[in-house]
Design a protein around this nucleic acid. Structure first.
Length: 432
DNA sequence: TCTGGGGTCCTAGGACCC
DNA sequence: TCTGGGGTCCTAGGACCC
């Protein structure tokens, strides 16, 4: 049995802890470069503001509806998250931190009334961390997720579900008929693992509610869709297919990408940008104790704007797996010089570290013939510690070309490796 | 004018080998 | 020489998550 503890409107709730005057008002938190809304208060949701809505499309509500917009402060949210997570951990014997605002709690072996206990934990998180939460309980992670959705919706939209399910929804304590009623009044796309595409396909097949989905034959679902959706169906039926992952593996790839506030056409600022990205990515890489074997660099024009399109990337092989900022920055800069073509308004660029393997920077590189290398890697570990303690950008390795503090890079969507990736050897050198 | 930034898993198909 | 089956590895792309 699992619980899912999830902070409501998390970024907005974090801001409200320090600015109580925002309570009761429509508030959004905006992404990098104030591009679009990545968190919305209940009041903002009630205004019809969608997740990811571009700021320029909703800003008129500042005047018409008193909408308040805040620039994101991710350092603050990370701090608040840590507090919330350690309090949530009190609910059961194991915990998987799933995202900045959500954690699954394993409830195996717990005695007593879990609903009452959850209400108590919820009150404690609100009182000590200042964050309002919803808690959902189910026999599987998928059901716990669904329960959490019901707990939050019942609170936000009275009448949508029985009032006693608000804030804490324990599906395992519901009589069978009540459970069916709840599942029948929830649409399939609310299920964890069902997105827009598959949701639409399900509706076409007459599968509209979660109850409809839960009653499908798993074997048929596997044939018609995939093993992934089959697993979801089984989980809805109460069979555990997804385990609690309380000791996650290190990341298999690490990315740092940004959209630019204003389009960039020249090579030097692009090289500077990806150098900074590589430096950030190298920090993440060392933090998880990995080395990278390949580095991918890309840049592209805006998909939203007219004009000539450009979208290219290159994979730069690294001679040896490394976590050395200097080497990664060099590779990123070299890669950008290769992909760059003049005459385009670049909207976004990024760096991805690929083909990661475990390896301590120091121990992993001791056998290098490079004499300075050991000293440099030791220095980098020291710099990482300082930056972590005193904030990003406190000190830089000389290789990264100095501070980019205050630079405003914007944002845009990029989910997968760019399409036109070429091999390093096949790319002609750009004219600089 | 102005439109996130990260990640994961699964599958299909090609290359290569025996 | 010709033909074929089967396994493995890799990559690209689709779908999903927050």
């Amino acid at each position: 049995m699992y619980a899912l503890v999830d902070g409501n409107n998390f970024y907005v709730s974090c801001e409200r802890v320090f600015r109580p005057s925002l309570n009761g008002r429509p508030v959004v938190v905006l992404s990098n470069n104030d591009g679009c809304a990545i968190a919305r208060s209940n009041e903002a949701k009630a205004l019809g503001i969608k997740m990811g809505a571009p700021w320029f499309q909703i800003r008129h509500m500042e005047e018409t509806h008193g909408l308040v917009a805040l620039s994101a402060n991710f350092t603050l949210y990370g701090d608040m998250s840590n507090r919330m997570m350690s309090l949530a951990a009190g609910l059961g014997p194991s915990q998987e931190i799933y995202s900045i605002d959500e954690s699954f709690i394993g409830l195996q072996g717990m005695r007593g009334d879990l609903t009452t206990r959850s209400h108590a934990i919820r009150a404690r998180i609100h009182q000590w961390a200042g964050i309002p939460c919803g808690i959902g309980i189910g026999h599987t992670k998928t059901l716990a997720k669904l329960a959490n959705h019901i707990a939050k919706t019942a609170e936000r939209k009275p009448g949508s579900y029985p009032a006693e399910l608000a804030q804490v929804c324990n599906l395992t304590a519901l009589p069978a008929q009540d459970l069916d009623d709840v599942l029948a009044s929830t649409l399939v796309e609310e299920v964890w693992g069902v997105g827009r595409k598959i949701g639409a396909q399900l509706h076409q097949c007459g599968v509209h509610t979660v109850l409809d989905l839960a009653r499908l034959d798993p074997a048929m679902v596997r044939r018609r869709w995939s093993v992934v959706l089959e697993r979801t169906v089984r989980e809805l039926q109460g069979m555990q297919c997804i385990e609690l992952d309380d000791a996650p593996e290190p990341k298999r790839e690490i990315a740092c990408t940004r959209s630019f506030g204003q389009a960039v056409t020249e090579l030097p600022p692009l090289v500077e940008a990806v150098s900074e990205f590589a430096s950030r990515a190298a920090e993440k890489l060392r933090k998880q104790g990995s080395l990278a074997s390949q580095l991918l660099v890309f840049c592209h024009t805006s998909p939203f704007r007219p004009g000539p399109r450009f979208n290219k990337s290159v994979v730069v092989p690294l001679r040896r797996p490394t976590a050395d900022t200097g080497k990664l920055v060099w590779a990123a800069a070299a890669g950008m010089r290769r992909v760059y073509e003049p005459g385009y308004k670049m909207a976004k660029a990024g760096v991805m570290l690929l083909d990661l393997m475990p390896g301590n920077v120091l121990q992993g590189e001791l056998d290098l013939e490079d004499e300075d290398h050991r000293d440099r890697t030791q220095l980098m570990v020291a710099l990482d510690a300082l930056n972590q303690r005193y904030g990003k950008g406190t000190v830089h390795s000389g290789a990264t070309g100095g501070s980019n503090k205050g630079k405003d890079w914007g944002m845009k969507q990029e989910r997968r490796t760019p399409q036109y990736t070429t091999r390093w050897e096949d790319v002609p050198v750009a004219r600089a």
